[in-house]
Design a protein around this nucleic acid. Structure first.
Lengths: 205, 205
DNA sequence: TCCAACATGTAAACGGTTACATGATTAC
DNA sequence: GTAATCATGTAACCGTTTACATGTTGGA
């Protein structure tokens, strides 16, 4: 064992969760599915092999826990080597400007869609974003009632979580602002092209 | 030829660019590297095989163009089938809420970093974001001077591009707001823990 | 009796990244 | 001469997604 290569990003994501508490593969799977503002996720089929790899690398260790109700669970815990590796990784440099977005990819060619189709797309994303924002704020408010504001809370473990939530809330709000703006643009253009419009016609000629 | 499976996302990204003008693989590579608000990108080594695949699927066609200055270029153009496929894909539903972010992944465990390390990380991202925002606004302003506001411009091809730029500008500003906030939180907490603080001490006891 | 949740995986296919490879032309 | 830019690729590896596979327990 202990083939010491560094973990990949998913590996660090799992180490972070295990640093808070020992968990089974199934627990991790639920954590990824449930937590809204965590910055990473993975499919079930990725988690179990990844845990085995982390164990082979010596970053986690596991034991089987018998259960009276249901099948046995294998519980994973972070090792000293795992914690050292995680803490060393956290402050390393990163590029957070380049991101892929299927939405933006489509907006770029939105002139190829009929206005109604584009409006429907924007409205769908707006509904999604509004629901997402509501879930984020309700969790943030719940944490804030329990632990206070991040700058003064006595539980340091909550600071990062709250900052993540605030980040995602901030971005969701900005996206909603843009969605309103985009909708206005489509509607204005549709209205202008619907009726004869001197300024536009003159440029065409 | 014409193994008609639908393209993948990179395929659609390329089809969009080719819909505006025929391009070589090298041109596409430059487009991905240069355009800041396009929603997708790819490595050079992905582009050439992807173009071959799109051609095998009948979505693009190509011819070799001899050049007096430099090597020959293979120029790709979108086909009718490609345009049909692209236009059919554009308005399809999508989920734009789940996104991975290495930054957020680290913020979640920021309590494991010394405050100074976390501050340095935030400051780096802030510099990146500020530079990114400046590039975005300068392009947006240039386009706006040339074509006018997106809601009234007479060139429909520019509408999507401008909306993409406005989207990224909006999000970059929101991120900067959050970065300031996060920095305040770390600094406040560092200041409080530096000097004896009744409220905090009492809870620890 | 059937469905949902618990629990752990394997296999194949697909997508993305890094490293390697080649050779011509142009500007300094 | 040498470095940058033009131009096109291959190979190996790694990471992600989708589909498949199996069996238990508890509640409606």
């Amino acid at each position: 064992m202990t083939t010491r290569t560094t973990p990949n990003t998913l590996g660090y994501a799992i180490l972070q969760l295990l640093e808070r508490a020992p968990l089974s593969g199934y627990d991790l799977k639920k954590q990824f599915a449930a937590s809204l503002a965590y910055g990473w996720y993975a499919h079930d089929s990725q988690i179990y092999p990844q845990l085995k790899q982390l164990e082979a690398q010596g970053y986690v260790e596991s034991h089987v826990e018998a259960s009276s109700a249901g099948p046995d669970r294998r519980i994973y815990a972070i090792t000293d080597a795992g914690l050292t590796e995680l803490v060393a990784w956290l402050p390393t440099a990163l590029d957070d400007t380049r991101q892929k977005s299927e939405l933006i990819l489509r907006v770029w060619s939105s002139d190829l869609m009929p206005p109604e189709a584009f409006k429907r797309l924007l409205a769908d994303v707006e509904t999604q974003t509004r629901e997402h924002l509501e879930r984020l704020t309700s969790i943030r408010n719940r944490l804030q009632r329990r632990y206070g504001l991040p700058e003064v809370t006595t539980d340091p473990r909550q600071v990062g979580v709250m900052l993540c939530l605030e980040h995602d809330i901030q971005l969701a709000r900005a996206k909603l602002t843009w969605l309103e703006r985009a909708l206005t643009v489509v509607e204005t253009r549709a209205a202008l092209s619907g009726q004869p419009l001197e300024a536009a016609d003159m440029v065409e000629v």
